[in-house]
């Protein structure tokens, strides 16, 4: 009886392990999603939401300011990681979200930009649309569905290049 239980447990473990390993690479992805927000708690919430849905398909980098975000971008570039999406808060000390995304767009036109804002500052959004090719803006408090949908639609722009994590 105990033996049978141990057997069944082993089988379930194997099943679980296969489930986990079967649909993900056993290494970090070379594609990244960056979240920028001056609130650390917001960043943690965002990362867990995104990683829950996309698992290890992407790397998830966090920055608490525009300046730090540039550091992260540099590090990822050095590591040969391609940045797909940047989700940025608007109201942050120092450089604001719209300015930051515009600067990013000037250097990396292929990066999809998303603005996460508590204040719906129409002028800032319009600037970002015009000069940063803004993909979407999400109002705080945001819902998980919205966030995931925005990111999913943003990622579709890179669909033709997907699935290369196995051939790393």
């Amino acid at each position: 009886m105990l033996f049978l239980l141990q057997i069944s447990g082993m089988l379930r473990l194997l099943y679980v392990l296969r489930n986990i390993t079967g649909n993900q690479c056993m290494a970090l992805s070379n594609k990244a999603i960056i979240c920028v927000d001056d609130e650390r708690t917001v960043l943690l919430g965002l990362r867990d939401q995104i990683s829950k849905h996309f698992g290890n398909q992407y790397r998830y980098a966090m920055a608490e300011s525009a300046n730090e975000a540039w550091e992260v971008i540099e590090e990822l570039n050095d590591d040969g990681v391609r940045i797909l999406i940047i989700v940025s808060d608007w109201l942050m000390p120092g450089v604001r979200g719209d300015e930051f995304l515009i600067q990013v767009h000037q250097q990396f036109p292929e990066i999809v930009t998303v603005l996460l804002t508590g204040h719906a500052d129409a002028a800032a959004i319009e600037r970002a649309r015009q000069y940063a090719n803004l993909h979407a803006y999400i109002a705080k408090p945001w819902s998980e569905e919205t966030l995931i949908e925005v990111i999913t639609t943003g990622l579709r722009k890179f669909d033709d290049e997907s699935g290369d994590c196995l051939h790393r």
Partner: peptide
Amino acid sequence: INTPLGVIQAS
């Protein structure tokens, strides 16, 4: 206030 509310919701 919306920011922590969003965080709570997400968490």
